[in-house]
Design a protein around this nucleic acid. Structure first.
Lengths: 146, 146
DNA sequence: ATATATTCTATAAACTTAGTAGAGTTTAAT
DNA sequence: ATTAAACTCTACTAAGTTTATAGAATATAT
């Protein structure tokens, strides 16, 4: 399961994705339309800014906009930013590698190769799914239900 | 990332898998050979027993053995037992379904279909990987390094 | 009886999550 | 210049989870 923070971030990015080319969108607007606590969202947007996924402008008429193309922001990217490793165990993580405390010998670990396969299964599908995927979904059959 | 508990459980099950047909294996033995705190492992084995994955016998010469075929215990099964849902969000979980607090309308949620795809990616590979997969790994090239 | 080994419940320290609070900074409009 | 709008940053906190540890109880074989 992903954290609420990560989920909120994906919702916020998708919201910003709908606004591409239309200037800045305010935190308060995103918070209300996506049902996210405003003060919590402020923190999240700030983290997304520091990760260079969004850009911001202060003051009246300010707000946030996407800094990258929606298809260049994957669920994997956002997950890594807020929740860390995609891998099930640290010793097979690409971006958050750490030695397992309890493993005597990494090379001889019988679970490692299998955990790498599992990581690849998750990593590939999470990398393929982007903010654009969510935007596409909103353009098809779903529109009637909003 | 999976919890230590889940990882320990997989290691313990694999250890028991090596002993199939050879009677009972003691907690103390598993704890030492897999580098797992013994008292913690006791709890874990008990949970595995309650989930009918292992069987036990008390007293002298007692211990644990697998109750199922190693290829019928998947990483997905063990993950669900100790860490819960495989899905990234509760509203697309098969075994731990819950409505998302922040979602106004599940049907119109633009992320849902994509999260289902991600869940399937993870679920399939985690279901395919079993205790037998780990046992197979230990029988091939790895043996020399143990 | 006694030693062995699982069973069960309670407890606790450390860490993480999901926020909240508030002061500060920047910008646009008046 | 002043004011209001909006982001920026740091600190804090309550609740929950994780990773164990402790100890008494129960069952079994010799």
């Amino acid at each position: 399961m992903m954290s609420m923070k990560c989920k909120y971030a994906l919702k916020a990015l998708t919201c910003l994705g709908k606004n591409v080319g239309k200037g800045y969108m305010q935190t308060a607007f995103i918070a209300e339309s996506e049902n996210i606590p405003k003060k919590f969202l402020e923190q999240i947007l700030l983290e997304l800014k520091h990760a260079h996924m969004v850009s911001s402008k202060q003051g009246t008429g300010g707000g946030y906009h996407l800094l990258k193309n929606p298809k260049e922001i994957s669920v994997a990217d956002v997950y890594r930013l807020f929740d860390g490793a995609i891998a099930l165990v640290p010793c097979v993580s690409i971006n958050f590698y750490e030695k397992c405390d309890d493993c005597k010998n990494e090379i001889s670990c019988v679970m490692r190769d299998e955990f790498i396969k599992i990581r690849e299964g998750a990593r590939i599908v999470m990398s393929k799914t982007t903010i654009q995927s969510f935007l596409n979904a909103s353009k098809t059959t779903k529109t009637k239900n909003n």
